[in-house]
């Protein structure tokens, strides 16, 4: 008798455990669903709001005015009369990020190398903390820093070179600010990548007579390439979406596309969305959502391209390889035909 009772209580205990488990599973699933749906809802919201300027009528007095789709993608002058184009912001977003990468990529890779492999223990912790703190600084603070320090700095450089600037508000200032902001992300990920490099590789290199410097440059950085690249991708993501700090230093001009003068003011997609949104109403307000769609598209496409490049060496039959092979084949065919 006693035995049976014991078994029953055990069973009921188990049942209770199962029920509690199920409840906790449901709760967790609920939280996950909330997180996931925030992304879906916000994307759908921006899509709907962003398509509005292309469809709705914004004209007064019976005139039909809406944003023309073709000029949105071809025109590089930003106007609020429906014929403006976002290409100015598009090119400058890419341009500013590319400029910033020239500064931030080497800096963060070598900083990471120094922290992970070269620096003595005491200094390592201090620098590491400094970089982590840099990542925690809000972008408004970077914006103020840019206004107070980077803009006058750029102004002085330009004055020495004899180039006129808008008191330093320029693409170069924007690129510098973005570089500073993306360095912590890139460095932190590069450090983990460099730390993950197999010690036997390093030992092998040193045993073969390579110097420490040679090992650092040729073995460690090369083996950590994929991790470093992941850091760069994240850094680019932050750089493309940055609005507050950029808006404070870049000058927010929306006219006169040029790539040769990095001392002239410009605007990125994100900064264009932010600047003047408080004054905007009607069409000027809604068109910012269209810029939002463009920004999301740019970020997604950039990430896809970068990931494809990152995986280029790993999978021999990847899509990029195939495309390049095809292009190569076409060029070869063309040449052969020409020769014939």
């Amino acid at each position: 008798m006693e035995n049976i009772v014991k078994v029953e209580t055990k069973n009921s205990r188990n049942k209770r455990k199962i029920i509690v488990d199920k409840i906790i599973h449901l709760l967790l699933f609920f939280l996950v669903a909330i997180c996931a749906s925030i992304i879906i809802v916000s994307v759908i919201f921006i899509l709907i709001k962003g398509i509005q300027p292309f469809v709705d009528n914004y004209g007064a007095d019976g005139e039909f005015v809406n944003q023309s789709l073709s000029s949105f993608f071809t025109n590089s002058t930003w106007t609020y009369d429906g014929n403006g184009g976002a290409m100015f912001f598009f090119f400058f977003s890419i341009y500013v990020v590319a400029l910033s990468l020239i500064i931030s990529v080497p800096t963060s890779i070598f900083t990471a190398l120094f922290i992970a492999k070269i620096s003595p223990r005491g200094i390592k912790d201090v620098i590491r903390t400094a970089i982590d703190l840099l990542a925690a600084i809000p972008s408004v603070i970077f914006g103020l820093f840019g206004k107070g320090i980077i803009n006058p700095f750029v102004y002085n450089i330009a004055e020495t070179l004899g180039i006129q600037t808008f008191a330093g508000s320029s693409i170069l200032s924007g690129a510098l600010i973005i570089a500073v902001m993306s360095i912590p992300t890139m460095t932190t990920l590069s450090i983990s990548a460099i730390n993950a490099v197999d010690q036997s590789l390093i030992n092998g290199s040193l045993a073969l007579g390579a110097s420490t410097a040679q090992t650092n440059m040729k073995i460690i950085i090369r083996s950590a390439k994929s991790g470093i690249f992941a850091g760069i991708i994240l850094g680019i993501g932050r750089a493309l979406g940055e609005a507050t700090a950029i808006q404070m230093v870049i000058g927010n001009s929306a006219n006169g596309l040029n790539f040769y003068n990095i001392f002239s003011p410009g605007s990125t997609i994100a900064s264009a969305m932010l600047s003047g949104i408080n004054e905007a109403s009607g069409f000027g307000y809604d068109i910012r959502f269209s810029l939002g769609i463009l920004l999301m598209a740019v970020i997604v496409v950039t990430n896809l391209i970068l990931n494809a490049i990152k995986n280029y060496n790993r999978d021999k039959d990847g899509p990029v390889r195939k495309i390049i092979k095809k292009i190569g084949g076409l060029i070869k065919n063309g040449k052969e035909k020409q020769e014939n």
Partner: peptide, 25 residues
Amino acid sequence: EDKWEDGVVVASPTSNGDMMSQVGS
């Protein structure tokens, strides 16, 4: 509307105070 002539570069401060500080520098 932002109908500037082609090639005219105009910087946009975001408020009255920002305008004064930018022209002031």
